[in-house]
Write a protein that binds this DNA or RNA. Structure first.
Length: 1030
RNA sequence: GCCCAGGUGGUGGAAUUGGUAGACACGAAGGACUUAAAAUCCUUUGAUGGUAAAACAUCGUGCGAGUUCGAUUCUCGCCCUGGGCACCA
């Protein structure tokens, strides 16, 4: 027998598979059922493949190889996501053309891919930076534009004032430029945006039927963040000292628009009015509690009302400061809220006419809702903090409501309900860390001191009186109110009536221990007990008391739950749920608000001021701009996605062109708009893409009117190319899509698309859940709406993988120097070992720290497989055959669920059994090799050949279990007494309960323990355990 | 801070989804083979107590409570680690 030599056999089989690719590669319209597997295509960086690729791609290859043996026509395509920052930075640093660097990197990674022995559809290879590919990306962008889903807006970017370049978030470290360390500021830049928000509901609905892990769905749902509520308009009035001149110097334009959900109409324009401030809230029921308003620093109310603002200087400097902070820094809850009042104006609460101050504060983001909020400190935590800091009124309008619906305290419909005003007192010991509690023995209640408020008495007076009466302690040192009032509804057994209590809570500190025995009339239902502070939480069993204790212990906070409306005029007594509707209705009637839906999802910033990306196939034409603006054309307001044409004079304009006056799409025939070569890849001093320096490229003619026009010099973000690549694979464009008319080709390839889509399994990193996965679903749904994509949802099933950390538990990073690369392992142990070990390391969807110590285990495993599979043929051992059938079932279902560590363990276990055998039957060898094959294809292929089995293993069939070979088995049954393991017996599987009980009781050990005890209960779990409870 | 995960021996992990916790593998210790090393093979390996050795007993799945005959698994509260937070891919 030769030695196991992976280097030799891996090369040999890779060549054979390559030469016979026709036999296993995906074919359009094969007789076999199709199966489309997909992994996230790699970014061809200079570093080559990393561990994440190895993990993801191996999992897909294992799965796909099994599927092929099961008779599917499996596609596992590969391509390159090659536009992006790292290559551009590399180009700047080494003065190499990005396209050249990309080609080199692709060649390098291709070699690595082949070395790992993956079955890949190389005939479908794509490259996002190839003009043959990106002409389609450009075409899709134009479709989005034509359908009114692309628009220009002023969006802040990270700007390094020293280097004079825009920075990616990643390039900003602690608010400073990664390269030069200068403080980064926000600079507004006119950018292309995609209206993904218009697809928010579709993206939510689409999730329902998809086979995505729950956590992926939840994360997308939360990211989209749909919330129902109301828009409410607060009039703005001048304070006594200033007067607002009508519409003074106020302009309405698109550039005022801040992305988000603040729009009423569908054409990207915001109706700006200086006379009111619009807020979005999910809690219109708290409107009476609004005691101030806050606008974000970006809000246009500031620029619109400059003449009225009396402290402009202060306001402006605050805005400047806010520019330096990221959203993350601004919203950090533990940080001190900052803000200042805008003096000279006030807002009027539309529900009660109250005049309230307006603040500017950076904890309000311009990107969510309308960029302005009503401050309801009693019922919102952030507002609470802000109000505390700036000493603003806190007005409770919702009372926590505790109602008892079960048990002896449940409300009884046959009894009268009596409303009472109550107090609750947390009585503190004068010296020790103890609280005085009441134990209502007869009723089972544990509470603080409770009592009613008598006529003519204030709540505080009542609290003092009740404390003295009920506890007998005479001297109160201090009394302090907890601001939130609660409502409670329950059956009061001690009074035989339903009680509706409105309860206030006081913290009463005793001065000393001077004590008179309380009168019996006050204490007949309960006894008083001093409880240690730490025991209180578990001692109390009255919900409102628990709430008060929580407020006392952890400090008072806003009550943000639903409850009963108070201090709200005609809405008093309503439940929050009803008041939300009723107050919204009232506002709608008055014209000062309406119900509305808001999303956390924001529109997609689609521009980059960089070189290495897809050029935007669009030009700016002054003539056309004037033509459109002078036409005074009304922009239709429709939710439908349609490609509407608008005729102005002799020209047809698309919806996008009407919405973005002057911006004219290139004709399809002019695609691709090829990225021109430039001398320098650095952005210009004013932050524009290096393309802007190429005046002979920028200056062009308008495809619409033929007049002079300028090209857009921004490029698309890296996400663009990856948002439709799954369709590109199905298009199989390398075979016959050389030079056809772009606009029609998608339609001509409908059959191919319909055959392959949707992707059956999409494997990828958890870190892509909210961006790439959502963006690509958006594009696909859009393409579906315009009749290009055959299915609504592109991915049937999503399988996430966890990242592989370095052995030190940190992310692998070149700068730390803790990177391990797949190459190193392959060259040492071979591809089969590398593949199998990375599967064996741990559950596929979990984060793992790399540890190369374990590799030798897989290596030894394969050496033993090598020997076992070359043992002399022997007759089949029925015991081993039986175990083998279980192995088939287990390995099959594990692989199907992408649980790829356990099948390896089970195969090892079986191999260890074979180790003890002198001979192995051909049947066992054949099944075992096929089960191991997806993990270690080269090894199994070689052993298949050595055993002279038919054909090649890659053309064989996936084994099926043969039930007739499964023998009746013995099982071990644990005998427990009171759930403690006491003994274990072996019986035949499926033994009847009474026989098992008998056998178990007859065991001497069990007998001894059970002696003299009576068994109250016997619990039997089939084939697992028997438990005697005494 | 917000959203989503995870926490089990010295290490990576397993556990039929509420039923023998630690499969499989690494590492370590001892032994065999060898002039020696590597490779290979055999034995032991959660902790503590116990025994000459066993038997056996107690504890043990981040911490604290709860539900249950029984909890790594379910519920609540807390601590820690990782992923994402919109211009990295």
């Amino acid at each position: 027998m030769e030695k196991y030599d992976p280097a030799r056999i891996e090369q040999k089989w890779q060549q054979i598979w390559d030469e016979n690719a026709d036999k296993w590669r995906a074919k359009d319209f094969s007789d076999k059922p199709k199966f489309y597997t997909l992994f996230e295509f790699p970014y061809p960086s200079g570093d080559g493949l990393h561990m994440g690729h190895l993990r993801g791609q191996t999992a897909v290859d294992v799965f796909a190889r099994k599927k092929r043996l099961e008779g599917y026509n499996v596609m596992t395509p590969i391509g390159w996501d090659s536009f992006g920052l790292p290559t551009e930075n590399y180009a700047i640093k080494y003065k190499i053309q990005p396209s050249v660097a990309t080609k080199e990197n692709i060649a390098k990674i291709t070699k690595q891919e082949k070395m790992l022995g993956y079955f890949l559809d190389w005939d479908r290879e794509i490259d996002t930076s190839d003009p043959k590919y990106y002409r389609w990306t450009q075409w899709i962008f134009l479709q989005l534009f034509k359908h009114g889903l692309a628009y220009k807006a002023d969006i802040p970017i990270n700007w390094c004032p020293k280097d004079k370049i825009g920075l990616a978030n990643e390039e900003v470290i602690d608010g400073r430029c990664e390269r030069c360390g200068a403080l980064v500021i926000k600079k507004k830049v006119s950018q292309w945006m995609l209206r993904i928000t218009k697809y928010a509901d579709k993206l939510l609905d689409g999730l329902k039927d998809l086979d995505f892990p729950e956590r992926v769905k939840t994360q997308q749902i939360n990211w989209i963040g749909r919330s129902k509520g109301a828009k409410i308009r607060f009039d703005i009035i001048p304070t006594a000292t200033s007067v607002i001149p009508a519409k003074a110097g106020i302009q309405t334009s698109d550039s005022d628009w801040i992305p988000g959900q603040a729009r009423d109409d569908n054409n990207g324009r915001r109706i700006t009015d200086n006379k009111f401030l619009e807020v979005f809230t999910t809690r219109p029921d708290t409107l009476f509690g609004a005691t101030f308003m806050v606008v974000s620093p970006e809000h246009n109310v500031i620029s619109n009302l400059r003449p009225q603002i009396s402290n402009l200087h202060e306001v402006d400097s605050y805005i400047d400061q806010a520019k330096c902070k990221s959203d993350l820094e601004r919203t950090e809850l533990n940080k001190d809220k900052t803000g200042i009042e805008i003096k000279g104006i006030k807002a009027v609460n539309p529900i009660n006419g109250e005049e309230i101050p307006i603040f500017i504060a950076d904890y309000v983001l311009s990107t969510y809702g309308t960029g302005a909020i009503m401050g309801v400190p009693a019922h919102d935590e952030r507002d609470w903090e802000f109000a505390k800091k700036y000493d603003l009124e806190i007005k409770q309008v919702v009372a926590p409501f505790y109602t008892t619906t079960a048990g002896e305290d449940a409300i009884r419909p046959d009894k009268e309900t009596v409303e009472r005003k109550m107090i609750c007192a947390i009585v503190k010991h004068w010296k020790e860390d103890k609280i005085y509690c009441l134990n209502w023995e007869k009723f089972g209640w544990h509470s603080f001191v409770l009592g009613g408020i008598d006529d003519g008495e204030t709540a505080e007076e009542a609290a003092k009186r009740e404390v003295i009466e009920e506890t007998g302690y005479q001297n109160i040192e201090s009394i302090e109110k907890i601001s939130i009032v609660t409502h409670n509804n329950f059956f009061a057994r001690h009074r035989d009536e339903n009680r509706y209590s409105i309860s206030e809570c006081f913290i009463v500190t005793l001065a000393d221990g001077s004590h008179h025995e309380p009168e019996i009339e006050h204490t007949k239902n309960h006894t008083g007990v001093w409880k240690d502070r730490r025991e209180i939480k578990s001692y109390l069993n009255q919900p409102s008391n628990k709430y008060y204790w929580d407020q006392y212990e952890n400090g008072e906070t806003a009550f943000d739950g639903h409850g009963i409306i108070i201090n709200s005029g005609e809405f008093n007594g309503q439940k929050s749920e009803d008041a939300i509707k009723n107050i919204t209705d009232k506002l709608t009637e008055d014209g000062s608000g309406e119900s509305s839906v808001s999303y956390k999802l924001r529109d997609w910033v689609f521009s980059r001021q960089h070189y290495w990306g897809e050029p935007m196939p669009i030009v700016f034409c002054q003539n056309c701009k004037k033509l459109i603006e002078n036409s005074k054309l009304e922009i239709p307001n429709s939710n439908k996605i349609q490609n509407q044409k608008f005729k102005i004079q002799s020209h047809n304009f698309t919806l996008g062109e009407i919405q973005n006056p002057g911006w004219i799409a290139l004709n399809d025939d002019n695609l691709p708009l090829v990225l021109p070569k430039v001398k320098h890849y650095e952005p210009t001093d004013d932050g524009k893409s290096p393309l802007s320096k190429m005046t002979d490229w920028v200056d062009t003619t308008c495809p619409k009117c033929g007049g002079p026009a300028m090209r857009e010099t921004d490029t698309m973000p890296n996400w663009a190319g990856s948002s439709w690549y799954f369709l590109a694979y199905a298009l199989n464009q390398n075979s016959d899509l050389k030079s056809q008319n772009i606009g029609n080709t998608f339609k001509e390839k409908q059959k191919e698309l319909a055959y392959w889509m949707p992707v059956d399994v999409y494997e990828g990193g958890m870190e892509h859940t909210t961006l790439h996965l959502l963006y690509s679903r958006f594009w696909n749904e859009f393409l579906y709406d315009i009749g290009v994509a055959p299915v609504k949802e592109p991915y049937e099933k999503r399988v996430p993988h966890g990242i592989i950390l370095a052995s030190d538990g940190r992310k692998m990073s070149k700068s730390i120097g803790n990177v391990v690369r797949p190459d190193e392992i392959v060259s040492k142990y071979g591809a089969d070992t590398a593949r199998t070990y990375v599967m064996f390391m741990g559950p596929h969807d979990q984060t793992l720290a790399w540890d190369d110590k374990g590799i030798s285990g897989v290596w030894r495993f394969f050496k033993k497989v090598w020997e076992n599979m070359q043992k002399a043929e022997g007759s089949a051992d029925p015991k081993i055959e039986s175990i083998l059938q279980h192995l088939i079932v287990d390995v099959s279902s594990d692989i199907e669920q992408f649980q790829l560590n356990t099948p390896v363990a089970k195969l090892m276990e079986f191999n260890n059994i074979l180790l003890k055998q002198k001979t192995v039957s051909n049947e066992t060898k054949s099944v075992f090799l096929r089960l191991l094959y997806p993990f270690a294809p080269h090894l199994c292929e070689e052993l298949w050949e050595i055993n002279k089995f038919d054909d090649n293993i890659y053309l064989s069939n996936w084994p099926k279990p043969d039930k007739s070979k499964i023998k009746d088995e013995k099982v071990n049954i644990v005998i427990q007494i009171n759930s403690k393991n006491r003994d274990i017996i072996e019986v035949e599987s499926g033994l009847a309960d009474d026989k098992l009980t008998e056998q178990a009781k007859s065991r001497p050990k069990i007998k001894a323990i059970l002696d003299g005890k009576s068994i109250s209960k016997t619990i039997i779990v089939k084939n697992r355990l028997i438990n005697f409870v005494t």
